[in-house]
Amino acid sequence: MTTAAHRSASSRSEMLVTGEFAFSAANFREIADLVKAESGIDLAESKATLVYSRLAKRLRALGIPTFSDYCDAVRDDAAERSSMIAALTTNVTRFFREQHHFEHLRKTILEPLADAARRGNRVRLWSAACSTGQEPYSMALTVLSAIPEAAQLDVRILATDLNPHVVAHGMKGLYQQEELSDVPPNLRAKWFAPVAGEDRGALKISDEVRSLVSFRELNLMGSWPFKGPFDAIFCRNVVIYFDRDTQNMIWQRLTRLLADKGALYIGHSERVSGPASAMLTADGITSYRKSGGVRA
């Protein structure tokens, strides 16, 4: 039996989801393998219904009749692989999510670095899965609370995500009123302004806040075209989707880029593991500091 015929037979005999498009176990495994190779995300078969519902929209948009045909297309099309992963990644975020992390950032990292920053020293922070921008902008607002003149100093925040659509959203800095419910009223009044035109009803974050943040598309499984060191890295609710070996690798790479005594903030369901464990010390709820001398 040819490969195509074998796949067809497999598709008929091992259906995971039935509906507008037949979705077989073979289709799921091929998509899961592509997603893991491309992004590190480890999809369990229990996610088959979610994968189907999100990718069925891609099949409709592209006019592709079957998941087998979609697998053929996505295997050879890097742009569609990017769209596939964007469709499958979850972008749950909000301003000042896990408030204790931002309090730790201000008191433990930024306030001790404020005088050095005013003398011309660099301060670098990284939001390693920035989604639609609420996290890095929360970091920027925290920076301005500790160092009000930060926009005139060598203080910058790198914001990265593998999904180009959420990166573009973050760059705009536009948010609806309900998305700002966790922003303290004084910060909302100071740093956000209503907009007119087609975005009427939304609020835009100020140019001063936006100037602190640089958005970039970045796949954590690929090369990282920067050297650090970073005084703080937020990588929250990301590695939970990876297998253990990939988690260990990501923690180690992140930790190597931290400045001595730099902070790593992770998700509430995550735990640092692997070689990075020996380089980090717990310093609060899902907050870690890198071992080493205090940075001058």
Rank of each mutant, 00 (worst) to 15 (best):
W251V: 11
T132K: 00
G228I: 01
A25L: 15
L220C: 01
G293T: 07
A202G: 04
A22G: 13
A129N: 09
K261H: 11
R200H: 14
I240T: 07
I240H: 08
K107N: 13
E149N: 04
R60Y: 11
V123N: 02
T90F: 10
A276P: 01
T89Y: 04
S206V: 11
A79T: 09
H100N: 10
S24Q: 09
R188E: 02
A129S: 13
A278P: 01
S277M: 12
V166F: 07
L16K: 03
A22H: 07
F21N: 03
F102T: 06
S11L: 07
P229S: 06
Y265N: 11
A61S: 13
V272E: 06
Q247K: 13
V238H: 14
L113M: 08
S291A: 14
I147P: 00
P184Y: 14
V17L: 03
T66P: 00
S206E: 11
L258Q: 11
D77H: 02
D182C: 07
W191F: 13
D69W: 02
I205P: 01
I109A: 12
M84F: 03
D243E: 10
A151D: 12
I64A: 08
E14V: 06
L218A: 06
R271V: 15
R106I: 15
G201V: 11
K227P: 02
G63A: 06
N248S: 14
S39P: 00
R75N: 13
G19W: 08
W251R: 06
V213H: 00
H101T: 09
A202M: 15
A44T: 11
I147F: 01
S82A: 15
K290E: 12
K190F: 11
F96H: 02
E149I: 08
M171P: 00
D260Y: 00
I109N: 03
L113P: 00
A9T: 05
